[in-house]
Design a protein around this nucleic acid. Structure first.
Lengths: 412, 412
DNA sequence: CGCTATTTGTTCAGTGGTTGAATTATTTGA
DNA sequence: TCAAATAATTCAACCACTGAACAAATAGCG
């Protein structure tokens, strides 16, 4: 029988160079101190000659700079360290959420160079109007980036809902959006980014997915594979495998909110019973803690809940323990299935992590078979607030690092 | 921040040819009728000159043959179709299970060329003795393969348990194996396969994983991504994404048996409560159907259960309905999380599929959000009995198709 | 202070592999 | 029988990597 996967692309002559550009650039990005050409040659297995040629291209394209202060060490001609350019291409991350808009710019090295948040209740606003405001915010971010010598090479927009490949927002229940063609709505505005070969000008993706990717930018100790659970009104999971997001067959992976945790339990708005969301969703937790009627904005309510729990309020503590247990049951299933070793509590769960973590950990270690061999880490997300915007911007940058040839060919 | 994934390998000069060998061979394998060189050039994007050169290598290496009967069509010089060689390298699949040993040989085209099963209760047998019997079976298979002009290029052994990277069987509870170093035990016997660059002589893997891969060989209509659930004493899931197996961070993915379906339900031997296994494991189903005391071999008991259900026995029907519901709850969670569109009921579930399928489907369509957009297919495994052996042999073949250079360099 | 050892980075001829165009091969249809 | 059409091969050109030799720059040592 034939293999059912689509055959990979051909390799033309030039693909060789393209690939080695990515190999060398990737090494420079992954190194903990500026590597020399000779070091790169040793580590990649390429000849010094080849590395020199490749680096020349990268320097000419402005993706890499020579680090001026050369660290003196031992005898021999001093090496010239190479670093990612701080003024080359950058990624633009955008986010539309229920009560804020956000934009941020991340440079090649993964540093957040600009970040702005505009608080506003977007539920009463029409999608077209929301997108228009977002375009303004993006224009501002673009100006800021230009002022620092950065060129925006692509943008990623995070939306709290289901998105299809074409960028159509199929359903964003908490925003009240349905079949909103975001790219088309943006068409009237000035383009967000420069055109770069192989990097789509705008990618629209689920907020939970991009927030998970954001975690990759949080620090050097981030593992390559982890589960990122973010609790908002719904509960989304981002599955990061080997440094990139697992999207599923149709791009709708990560719907952990409707994993059954008590099959005959509370009815859920999805029509089934006992979904995780009915036990560990924001509304459920707040209701259990007695904060239901307050009708506060989502993040304020969460802050309030954390305060109550910190002060030892029994209802709050109980609500969080219950939610944590339910979450732990669902997470244990995922970890058993995918054999992950790290679980990150993000989004609305991050500030509540001190209280959610113990019950989650308890359920996980009780239910995960391989926990005996190697323990599962459960920790709060390192990035706060608009992690999805950072993750989106980072995904653009990562795409350039993975395929630098696209950027090089478009340089004047 | 640096990307945390390890940078990919370098590309030497020759890798180019290696890659294009794989591209062209992959196209030949994926085509539904023997493609000509010109057709391959058009489809791969390579020049006709390059394709000719690549095909020459493949012909010389015995991986491909020219199909003699040329289908006449239109004007012009007739094309010579290319097919995968029926007498080139082949894969050896082996399986040790509770009550049988199996061996099979699959050729490049994915056809099962030899298959033999040896029924025997292996629980009272020592691991060394079991491996010795397996080696005999393998030797027979090798002789049969040689008689048909096939050379075994690698072997895969399926074991019902946890296996680590080195081929050490950490734990196979139903066999009573613990830390059995299968490759070492085989060292005393004649080698199973020829040595081929880049293809390990023996891979040991979980039976559920390989059985899932076997499904890929079942027919042309198999999707590239699916969940394969096989119910034996334990319940294993093989996750196939895009034609290849998802193994998880440490290779222990797929432990669906201990996904919680009723968190406060029956105690499980794993120490937790309400695991799927306690509701849809073989023992649980048989007990519920009143077949507990019979102490029949596993497959006989399953057959008996299917007979009872076919005859309308209420206890049997009830047991299957309950098991199906529990299975559906767990599967719904997986499908929500990974966004798969096909679920295959394999192993011990295959013969029970007529009764398990309706409740599984009911739970899945009730609980899976995206089921409204695109329905989830639930169907029995196409391969019967020793699907794991076929899947293992197929995985060897697939590795050769993916990296044909390894085979070509070892040819005399 | 000058010499040598040492390491970095570049230059250059050599080679493998793809490209594109021209050429040969083989058939159908007028 | 010849022209048109399609398949496959041949061949010079070119591109990118390789390996070795070479130039550059420094520390250490007498």
């Amino acid at each position: 029988m034939p293999r059912s996967d689509a055959p990979p692309g051909p390799v033309r002559q030039g693909s060789l160079r393209e690939w080695n550009l990515a190999v060398v650039l990737g090494r420079i990005a992954a190194a903990d101190r500026p590597p020399s050409r000779a070091e790169l040659a040793a580590r990649t297995g390429l000849t010094r000659a080849t590395v020199s040629a490749v680096v020349e291209d990268l320097l000419a394209g402005g993706l890499v700079r020579e680090a001026e202060p050369t660290p003196r060490t031992g005898a021999g001609r001093p090496s010239r360290g190479l670093v990612l350019a701080a003024d080359g291409p950058a990624g633009l991350g955008l986010e539309v959420n229920v009560d804020y808009l956000a934009a941020c710019v991340v440079d090649l090295a993964g540093r957040v160079r600009h970040h702005s948040v505009l608080r506003a209740d977007l539920r009463p606003v029409s999608p077209a109007e929301a997108v228009a405001r977002l375009a303004d915010l993006a224009a501002h971010a673009r100006a800021e980036a230009a002022r620092e010598g950065l060129t925006l090479a692509g943008a990623a927009l995070a939306v709290p809902g289901l998105v299809d490949d074409a960028g159509l927002v199929r359903l964003a229940p908490n925003l009240g959006w349905r079949d909103v063609p975001v790219p088309a709505l943006l068409a009237g505005h000035p383009p967000l980014t420069a055109h770069v070969d192989g990097v789509p000008p705008l990618v629209v993706d689920n907020e939970a997915n991009l927030a998970a990717l954001g975690e990759l930018h949080a620090g050097p100790a981030v593992p390559a594979s982890f589960l990122h659970v973010s609790g908002e009104v719904g509960i989304g999971a981002g599955i990061v495998l080997d440094g990139s997001l697992f999207r599923g067959a149709r791009g709708w992976s990560g719907e952990i909110g409707h994993v059954p945790v008590r099959p005959d339990g509370r009815p859920c708005r999805c029509g089934a019973r006992g979904c995780l969301e009915t036990y560990a969703g924001q509304e459920a937790i707040l209701a259990a803690a007695g904060l239901a009627g307050a009708d506060l904005p989502a993040d304020t309510a969460t802050t309030r809940l954390a305060e109550l729990a910190g002060a030892g309020d029994p209802a709050a503590l109980h609500a969080l323990a219950d939610a944590g247990t339910a979450l732990g049951v669902a997470v244990a299933g995922v970890v058993n299935l995918l054999d992950l070793d790290t679980v990150v509590l993000g989004g609305g769960y991050a500030p509540l992590a001190p209280w959610l973590r113990p019950p989650v950990l308890a359920e996980v270690s009780r239910r995960v078979l391989t926990a005996a061999w190697s323990p599962v880490t459960v920790r709060p997300a390192a990035l706060g607030g608009a992690a999805a915007a950072v993750g989106g911007a980072g995904s653009v940058v990562r795409r350039i690092l993975a395929r630098p040839a696209g950027w090089l060919t478009r340089q004047p």
